[in-house]
Every structure is written in C-alpha cells, then in structure tokens.
C-alpha cells in the first residue's frame, strides 16, 4: 500500500479517536454550562470527575493529527493554516481557555467567586471550541487552490470558511460532542437522579445530531459538492449510512430502555462512523480541490520511517491508554476517594 494512504489513514483514525475521547470532554463542558437548579453542583462534580484524569491524554490526538499533517502533507498543512488562520486561532484560544479554566477551577483551594468564574469560562469555551474546530473541518472541503503566481494557497483569509457549510459542520460537531458526552455521563453517573437527567439530555442531543447533520448535508450542496457527492453516490455511501443509522437507532433505543453500556458503545460507533464517513467523502483530497493525498505527500523516505515509528509507538501506546481507561473508567471508584477535582 502507498505510504501516503497509510499515513492519511492514521490521521483519520486519530481524528476518530479525538472525537470519541476529547470530543466528549468538550461536550461535558457544555453540559456544565446547562447545569441548573439544586443539583447543579453535583452535576458539575460528576462532569469534572469524568474529565479530570483523562482530558490531557485525550487532547494529544489533536496534536498527533496536526503533526502528521505537516510531516506527511506539508504544503496542504501550510495551505490550511494560511487560509484558515482566523478560525484556527479562535479554536486555539478556546483550547487554551478550556484546559486552563478547567484546571484553575479544579485546583483552586478557595471555592469562591474566582473558581466559579473559571468554571464558567470552562463551560463557555467548551461550547465555542468545537464549533471553531467544525468550521475548520468543514472549510477544507472546498475552495483550496494554489495561486500559480506564489505557489501558496489563493485566499482572502475569509472565503474558505465564512459560509453556511463550514458553520453547519461546526454546529454538527458541537451536537455530536455534546451527545457523546451525555451518553458517557449516563453510564458514569452513579446517582439515579443524575442518570435520568443525562439520559434526557442524551436523547435530546441525539435528536440535535440528526437535525444538524441534515443541515450540513443540505448546506453541502452549495458549500462542499465533493462531500455531498461522496455521501450520495459512492459505493461505500449506502452501507455507511445504514451502519450509522443503525448505530444511532441502537444508541437511542438503548438509552430509552436504560441499557447504558450498550448505548455508550453504539454512540461511539455512531461517532466513529460519522467521522470516518467524512474522511471517505474527503478522499482523495486533503483540501478540496487543489491538494490531494498523493500530490502533496512527502517523499517515501520520510513517510516510511514515520510510519514505522508510529507502529512501534502504537505497540506501547495502546496498552498504556487501555490501562488509563481501565483505572479510571472501568474499575469502580475506591471508597472515600475525594471528588474535588
């Protein structure tokens, strides 16, 4: 197999894993924004506990995506970071605020106004960052053509991303992250009242996922015809839609009937299929239509050593990550563990 396709596959996989892990961390922050009423503090505590030990590790998938993009497809990376300077900068500020505010809130020994303000910043940045991320993902689906005079991407720094389609993808991304978080939280909350609360939220946000997906699909007609075509006409389109639809139905059904582990697995499958479907629709482009996987690939004497390093790294990484999730997500919490962070 061509090394550039393998590397593109690794990037797509990292993007899927980022969605399923870090995406849900952002979604959790959004639910903290909606925490109201007498149980608000408990709600925020459950969310904080779910995120605290793992968010930094989950965040690394994004770094991996960005690094592999510039290692494997340097000119496409330069084109994306040039044309999407504005949404990427906004996303970065969101990333910085979210991570810092979460930690500042968790580690403030004085549970006063300061901590509350950071909790608020955490929640708001958790809401805005996925939208900015979605906008950038939506934007690479059209309008990327190198300027023959300079060799750089032709851009006025707005037109690639300032349109209905990228923002529809932004909203869809947000809805998906929020849905994943709610489904995970149903499984992780121990208190029956909170479980029921997150279950309602999971069902509502599951519906929102459907609505925003439809919105993005409609907007794609003008904004990303390549994606629309891929999702309609390709040989993989029908099985993909069926599988995604099945996962969605199973997830919602399992939520409704309180089979929480099954709901979690089905929601993860749904999220993975959505991101994978987007990647398939994007194929063979990195940025449509001027930057292809094959055309932009770094030489094989870069790609192969990096792929080998990735393979060796994965041998160590997979069991280590599994250990992290077993310690914090599978094993029951030890009695008397403080839940401050």
């Amino acid at each position: 197999m061509a090394p550039e396709l393998l590397l593109a596959g690794v990037i797509a996989t990292a993007l899927v894993l980022y969605t399923l892990t870090a995406g849900a961390d952002f979604g959790g922050g959004v639910w903290a924004l909606f925490a109201r009423g007498p149980r608000a503090e408990d709600e925020r505590r459950v969310i904080g506990r779910a995120i605290a030990p793992i968010w930094e590790a989950n965040h690394v998938w994004l770094i991996l995506v960005i690094v592999l993009l510039f290692v494997g497809f340097p000119r496409a990376f330069a084109a994306i970071t040039t044309a999407l300077h504005i949404p990427l900068t906004l996303m970065l500020m969101g990333v910085v605020l979210r991570g810092s505010a979460f930690t500042f809130n968790a580690y403030d020994p004085k549970r006063g106004d300061g901590a509350r303000r950071w909790s608020r910043v955490f929640a708001v940045s958790s809401l805005l960052t996925p939208v900015a991320l979605g906008v950038t993902l939506g934007a690479v689906s059209g309008g990327f053509v190198p300027d023959p005079a300079t060799g750089l991407v032709g851009t006025d720094f707005l037109r690639q991303w300032l349109g209905p389609y990228p923002f529809a993808v932004g909203l869809f991304t947000l809805a998906l992250f929020v849905f994943l978080a709610a489904v995970y939280l149903v499984d992780e909350a121990e208190d029956p009242e909170l479980k029921a609360l997150f279950r309602r939220r999971a069902l509502v946000s599951g519906g929102l996922c459907g609505v925003t997906a439809l919105l993005a699909y409609v907007a794609a007609e003008g904004g990303a015809p390549q994606i629309r075509e891929g999702l309609q006409g390709s040989s993989w389109a029908l099985p993909l839609h069926l599988a995604t639809g099945l996962a969605a139905v199973v997830a919602l059904g399992a939520l409704w009937t309180a089979r929480d582990r099954l709901a979690k697995l089905a929601a993860m499958a749904q999220g993975a299929l959505i991101v994978a479907g987007w990647c398939f629709a994007q194929y063979p482009y990195i940025a449509v239509p001027g930057y292809t996987i094959v055309g932009e690939a770094a030489p094989p004497d870069v790609l192969w050593p990096v792929l080998i390093a990735l393979a060796l790294g994965a041998v160590l990484l997979v069991p280590t990550l599994a250990y992290l999730f077993v310690v914090f997500k599978v094993r029951p919490a030890p009695a008397g563990e403080d839940d401050g962070h």
């Binding site: 590790a57 770094i63 340097p74 790294g313």
Partner: peptide, 18 residues
C-alpha cells in the same frame, strides 16, 4: 521543513501521550 523535522515531532507526540 515539515517532513524533515517530522521524526522528532512524531516522537514528541508519543512522548507527550505517555
């Protein structure tokens, strides 16, 4: 330079993961 300095950055990604 992206590809040329790809190895240290890829390895750094893993190190950061661990």
């Amino acid at each position: 330079a992206g590809p040329i300095i790809g190895m240290p950055f890829s390895l750094e990604g893993f190190a950061f993961f661990f």
